[in-house]
């Protein structure tokens, strides 16, 4: 306990080194191509492999190819929300200005990927399970995640004073993180229609290696793509806030408006 204040301070200063918007713009500009191009390459490779070269499943037939979209989307839906919760923590404890901007930008992207997860799951469920939707624990908890994203998007923009919006949204992001372990373990804790995870930390994957490879590639591709889009949007947000500051600064000369 005695060491914690300095640790907290040190972690804070570490994060604050990247809180400087100017520094972030430089870092982001350097990082961007390393995220964007590998994202495109990995996604195309993974999806192309999955769509044309990976084998059909013995009982699901070719519909198993939906997995190469559905599973990465599901992983990112949870991962994106974890990112949102981390931004919430940085915002509430260290008043990190960049974390607030990032939280504003992660929200819509995360909501989109969660919607994609739900939609592709539904499309996959119809031919395989025989239904578009059931209210089992896995599906319901992911739907709750989608609504948490929507709530976060609305809340962070709901106040005239942006600082109050950031604070409220950060609390929602942290509280909503309770849903993440529920999503993860729902298929183990309760009887669900959704099957348990094929890839676990503890056991060997119950999936053919010929399907695991394209899945891994597309998961890497989707993750890099998510990061690339979030970084690009956050860079744009930093520039936009600087534009607003310049426009409202008394120093500003007339002309371009």
């Amino acid at each position: 306990m005695s060491a914690s204040p300095t640790l907290v301070a040190r972690t804070g200063s570490f994060f604050h080194r990247y809180a400087n918007p100017g520094r972030f713009l430089k870092l982001g500009a350097r990082l961007q191509p390393w995220l964007t191009w590998p994202a495109i390459a990995f996604t195309l490779a993974g999806l192309g492999w999955g769509l044309f070269y990976s084998p059909a499943d013995w009982q699901q037939g070719d519909s198993v190819r939906i997995m190469y979209v559905h599973v990465p989307a599901a992983m990112l839906a949870s991962g994106g929300y974890a990112g949102l919760a981390l931004c919430g923590l940085l915002s509430l404890v260290w008043r990190h200005p960049l974390a607030d901007l990032a939280a504003v930008e992660i929200g819509p992207v995360g909501a989109c990927i969660t919607a994609l997860c739900l939609a592709t799951g539904s499309i996959w469920g119809k031919p395989m399970w025989g239904t578009w939707w059931v209210w089992d624990a896995r599906l319901t908890s992911v739907l709750v995640l989608f609504f948490l994203y929507l709530g976060h998007i609305a809340l962070i923009r709901a106040f005239d004073d942006p600082q109050r919006g950031y604070r409220a949204a950060a609390i929602l992001a942290l509280a909503g993180a309770v849903d993440l372990p529920i999503i993860k373990f729902s298929v183990q804790w309760w009887n669900t229609l959704h099957q348990p995870d094929s890839i676990t930390l503890t056991g060997a994957p119950t999936m053919s290696a010929s399907m695991l490879w394209p899945l891994a590639l597309s998961t890497i591709g989707f993750s890099l793509g998510f990061a690339a889009i979030v970084v690009a949007r956050t860079r744009a947000a930093v520039m936009e806030s600087r534009i607003r500051a310049l426009l409202s600064s008394p120093r500003r000369g007339g002309g371009a408006a």
Partner: peptide
């Protein structure tokens, strides 16, 4: 009134399943 199929977490190519069945190692 309704029957839903629940599939397990195993994903296996069709050819492998055929081979396993033929060799008698597994009966689904």
């Amino acid at each position: 009134s309704e029957v839903l199929a629940k599939h397990d977490e195993t994903y296996m190519p069709k050819e492998v399943a055929e081979a396993l069945k033929k060799s008698g190692k597994w009966d689904p």
